[in-house]
């Protein structure tokens, strides 16, 4: 087949934006729309409820102060990952340790959220106890699922980075997805917890 190629392959188009980057960005846009749908549904339901009933009397209020710590951890994780990326680009030998630190901060966020869920469940806020509970577990749970998936991918990226086999396309995808998880959280935190 190569013998009859009249149009030499080097003339192929150089991608303006690498395919992995473009594909990931489009995927993230679709994901943002998913959370936009959830948050708008929550906002409309909440605005339609009668005054003084959200959260309902007798049900726990969401621990906004305690969650502020988680929020800081998650934002820090995003910043550390970006720092790790800069180091990796400079081929620094400590880059993969910085990336692992970002992973650790992210994992701490998910773990602390889990602790918070257990406490809230024991206080009587369940998926079926009130619309607030339903929306809380749905939105925060949806975010947690994305965070867990991103953590798995980030761990994989760390292992490849430690072995020196990481491709820039894959690392870009992981980073973009993690930044999406990180930046989605403050919006959720502001809309759901307050």
């Amino acid at each position: 087949m190569e013998a009859v190629v009249t149009n030499p392959v080097p003339e192929r188009r150089k991608p303006v934006v690498p395919s992995a980057v473009l594909g990931t960005l489009i995927f993230v846009i679709a994901e943002v729309m998913f959370f936009a749908g959830l948050i708008s549904a929550h906002t409309i339901s909440r605005a339609g409820s009668l005054p003084g009933l959200w959260p309902m009397p007798g049900q726990p209020t969401l621990p906004a102060e305690a969650t502020a710590l988680n929020t800081v951890l998650l934002l820090l994780s995003g910043a550390v990952l970006f720092f790790g990326y800069r180091l990796w680009k400079k081929q620094s030998p400590v880059a993969h340790w910085v990336t692992l630190a970002a992973w650790g901060l992210g994992a701490a966020f998910v773990a602390l959220q889990g602790v918070e869920w257990v406490a809230l469940l024991s206080q009587g806020l369940t998926l079926r106890s009130s619309p607030l509970g339903s929306f809380f577990y749905l939105i925060v749970g949806g975010h947690a699922v994305h965070a867990l998936a991103a953590l798995v991918a980030m761990f994989w990226a760390w292992m490849q980075m430690a072995r020196g086999q990481l491709t820039s396309g894959f690392f870009f995808g992981v980073q973009t997805f993690w930044y999406f998880v990180v930046l989605m959280w403050p919006v959720i935190y502001a809309r759901v917890y307050f």
């Binding site: 409309i44 605005a47 339609g48 009668l50 009933l53 619309p131």
Partner: peptide, 21 residues
């Protein structure tokens, strides 16, 4: 009973709810 009180459509006609929508 409290669940009924949190009815999302009860305040639907009010400006607050239609503004949010």
């Amino acid at each position: 009973q409290l669940v009924l009180l949190a009815c999302a459509v009860c305040g639907a006609g009010e400006d607050r709810a239609s503004g949010a929508l």
